[in-house]
Structures are given as structure tokens and as C-alpha cells.
């Protein structure tokens, strides 16, 4: 990759880190869904488990929403930063 820049603008750097977060999120979700059940199935099978499960679920939805919003904004920001100013002499 010879034409890959060594250092990124702040906006693209931010966008890439958000992209990393989007990649990590499913892994974190899977761990959150599986580990507690393997660890203490007896505790999480009944009323308390229902509260835990639906609470976790709601948090996940909000997390995805916030992440997508941030990613869209970051994408807009990088697009603006990457677009060169209009050359007045260009035909």
C-alpha cells in the first residue's frame, strides 16, 4: 500500500476507531449473552434473570443506536474533510 497515508486527519482517525468499536460490539454482545448463563444458570433462569436479560437487551439497542449515529456523523465529517475545496479555475 504505497499510497496509504502514514498519519490520518483527526476526523478519519476518529471514524476508524468507531469502526473498531463496531467490530468489537458483536463479540462483547456474545460474551454478555453467554458467559453469565454458563456461570450461574440457576440465578438467571427466573424473575431476576428476566430483569437482567431485558435490561441488557435495552442497553444493547441503545448502544447500537448511539454507535450508528456516531459513525454516520463521523462519515459525514470525513467526507467534508476529504472533499477538496472547489477550484475556481477548473472547467
Amino acid at each position: 500500500m504505497p499510497d496509504r497515508p502514514l498519519f490520518l486527519e483527526r476526523a478519519s482517525f476518529h471514524r476508524r476507531r468507531l469502526g473498531d468499536a463496531a467490530r468489537v460490539l458483536p463479540v462483547v454482545t456474545m460474551l454478555l449473552l453467554l458467559v453469565p448463563i454458563w456461570w450461574m444458570p440457576g440465578v438467571l433462569s427466573y424473575a431476576g434473570g428476566a430483569v437482567w436479560l431485558f435490561g441488557l437487551w435495552a442497553v444493547l439497542i441503545v448502544a447500537v443506536w448511539a454507535l450508528h449515529r456516531a459513525l454516520l456523523r463521523a462519515e459525514d465529517a470525513t467526507l467534508r474533510a476529504d472533499t477538496p475545496p472547489e477550484d475556481p479555475d477548473a472547467l
Binding site: G19, A22, R23, L25, P26, H68
Partner: peptide
């Protein structure tokens, strides 16, 4: 709930 958690898991990877 597993039947609906599976799709939720997939959709957390919607972006990439």
C-alpha cells in the same frame, strides 16, 4: 428469548 437474541446479535454487526 434465544430465538430473538440471535438476530439481535447479528444486528449488532449490522455496520460492517
Amino acid at each position: 428469548a434465544t430465538i430473538y437474541l440471535g438476530p439481535t446479535l447479528v444486528f449488532t454487526a449490522a455496520w460492517w
